[in-house]
């Protein structure tokens, strides 16, 4: 599904990642952990083609991302749902349109998709907030909306960057449950998080592999997690 082969990434003369190799198999569930600034977000960006590795190869769906033009990169992102820590909404659009954004930009017939959109908004518990603008939403609502937007095109992979970073424990568990449900539907899930409590909680619900970035390198986390 996604494979990083001896990947290195440098920025501004400093090396952020070095000799990173990992394979995310279809339907697998991974956590990516490490201290702030360790390179978790960078690694996620490498996965969805927002960054290009300075060495090594990133493959997604059996294709080398280096060979993709801008149009192919856009198509790749429709197969990968990305949840950003800061959510990144279009503030001038109501929530329903923000969630439907991937459908809109891919030219889907919105009249035909309205039922799916309603169902998805119900799944994340935001039906009543459909007309609200993003600035009016709470942190938890924003994260759930970002998750809904990430999965509306039914992508094969869900990449989430600190999805519980700005919410309380109860909301973290709710989001985790949604991500586990997605994984049970067959989606590959990679969550970047420094919240060890969340990771421990997840391990009781799903068979998750925990990867840790330490000293620019990726390691499989030990039994302490």
């Amino acid at each position: 599904m996604i494979e990083l082969d001896d990947v290195g990434y440098s920025y501004g003369g400093g090396e952020l990642l070095s000799h990173v190799s990992v394979r995310l198999a279809p339907g697998s569930f991974h956590f990516l952990t490490g201290p702030s600034g360790a390179g978790k977000t960078t690694l996620l960006k490498l996965c969805y083609g927002a960054l290009t590795p300075t060495s090594g190869v990133v493959r997604a769906f059996d294709g080398d991302l280096r060979g993709l033009d801008r149009g192919q990169t856009a198509l790749l992102r429709r197969r990968m749902g990305v949840v950003h820590q800061d959510c990144r909404f279009l503030d001038h659009l109501p929530l329903a349109d923000n969630i439907a954004l991937p459908l809109i930009v891919s030219g889907r017939d919105m009249a035909q998709e309205s039922a799916n959109l309603k169902e998805l908004m119900g799944w994340v518990g935001l039906t009543a907030r459909a007309d609200a603008r993003p600035p009016e939403l709470s942190g938890g609502e924003r994260q759930r909306a970002a998750l809904a937007r990430a999965v509306i095109l039914s992508p094969d992979v869900v990449l989430a960057d600190e999805p519980t970073g700005n919410v309380d424990w109860e909301m973290s568990m709710r989001l985790l449950t949604l991500l586990v449900e997605l994984n049970k539907m067959g989606k590959t899930v990679l969550i970047a998080s420094h919240d060890l409590g969340l990771i421990r909680a997840a391990k009781s619900q799903v068979q998750a592999r925990v990867l840790r970035i330490s000293n620019r390198q990726l390691q499989l986390a030990g039994a302490d997690l």
Binding site: A50, R70, G71, A74, L75, L76, R77, R78, V82, H84, R88, F89, L90, L101, P102, V105, S106, R149, L153
Partner: peptide, 16 residues
């Protein structure tokens, strides 16, 4: 710029 970045992230083509 931020709108454009979001659109790129959700899979919008440059032409769109």
């Amino acid at each position: 710029a931020q709108v454009i970045e979001v659109l790129r992230l959700v899979g919008a083509h440059d032409s769109y």
